[in-house]
Design a protein around this nucleic acid. Structure first.
Lengths: 192, 192
DNA sequence: CTTGTTGGTCAACGCTTGTTGGCAAATATA
DNA sequence: TATATTTGCCAACAAGCGTTGACCAACAAG
């Protein structure tokens, strides 16, 4: 019997696992939790549905594996305070357009408890610290992060999920120009 | 045979129909489209699932009937321009907390095409004109409406759907104080 | 009273879902 | 070469879904 050492070499099934994860991310992003069926995901990955169960236990486990997310915030301390809003909004747009996981988490989080929790913890653990490191009083960093998140998530909702035409038609630069001052104020202005 | 005159009197079944609609709104708001099953809605309404089919045709028709929505915007022309942002945000919070349909449309619209279309048309037809009647150049009213909607929907998402703690804990007055300047700017400031 | 319409329940249909266990081939180990 | 282990497919399960049609009781019209 082959023991499962901590430093196990690459398995032959790694490609299959990766294909499953990729298909899962796309389906979750496009359809949400319920309509992203294991059968459809397996079909996209070109394998049998039972393989999904073997490698990820159940649908819940598959989503947990497929929704691992790193927002990859740049180091904001290294640039002038005045531009923080624009950089943050631009970074958010980049991440959103380059990674299905963000749309997936938003679509799933709206109807699935595990998805909502995932979104909450990502915002709290990844956006929170960035905000705490720059706003006037670190004590209200969570509130400021929530405000900034509400604006950026709201734009993602209108633009990438609901596809509200005026929001879709805006150029990247227009979105940044309009949203940057808002985010900037949420993060740095003194409480109203 | 009793003809169905345009001005038909109140039927004995009106109470049942209303109970179905109420249960449907609650379920759609709480669970989204897929998990809000006709069986569960019928159980909540205290009747048989087949009644839902008789009165609303199918699940799609039930959602269409249950998601009729009037945002009830006040006449904004009658008050000073400076306060428009605060009035609008306050009105949005009131409507959201007093009507399940808004949460239902948001939850359903994220994973269901009909729900998304409903949300788009409500925003376009009800928020659009209000904005068009006050912003500098009526030509970019749709874009301004989309911006304001992105902020208000984003806050609703964080506060009522995802229940992100800092967003939930803010008081109504705090939300208005922070969001009003944003919405005010989106509607009235000249394009950046 | 008789008759037709309405409001409602019940049992079932065909289908899809997540999930399971058995079995064959490919691969690794000895 | 002989033996385990891994990788994969297949067929099936129980449960839940939207939906349908037969049937019964209450009521209204003649």
């Amino acid at each position: 019997m082959k023991t499962d050492a901590p430093t196990a070499g690459p398995r032959r099934s790694d490609a299959t696992k990766a294909a499953i994860l990729e298909a899962a991310r796309e389906r979750f992003a496009a359809d949400g939790y319920e309509r992203a069926t294991i059968r459809a995901i397996a079909r996209d990955a070109g394998i049998d549905p039972s393989m999904v169960m073997r490698y990820y236990g159940n649908k819940e486990g598959l989503f947990a594996a497929a929704s691992e997310l790193d927002l990859r915030f740049p180091d904001l301390g290294a640039l002038p305070d005045k531009h923080i809003g624009a950089v943050l909004v631009g970074h958010f747009l980049d991440r959103w357009e380059g990674d299905d996981v963000l749309t997936a988490m938003l679509r799933v989080g709206v109807t699935n408890a595990a998805g909502a929790e995932r979104l909450r913890s990502v915002l709290g653990e990844q956006l929170g610290p960035v905000v705490a490191g720059m706003c006037p009083d670190p004590a209200d960093a969570p509130r400021r992060a929530a405000l900034a998140a509400s604006q950026m998530l709201g734009m993602a909702l209108a633009r990438y999920v609901l596809e509200f035409p005026p929001a879709v038609e805006m150029t990247r630069e227009e979105v940044i120009a309009w949203l940057a001052p808002t985010v900037q104020r949420y993060l740095t202005a003194e409480a109203p």
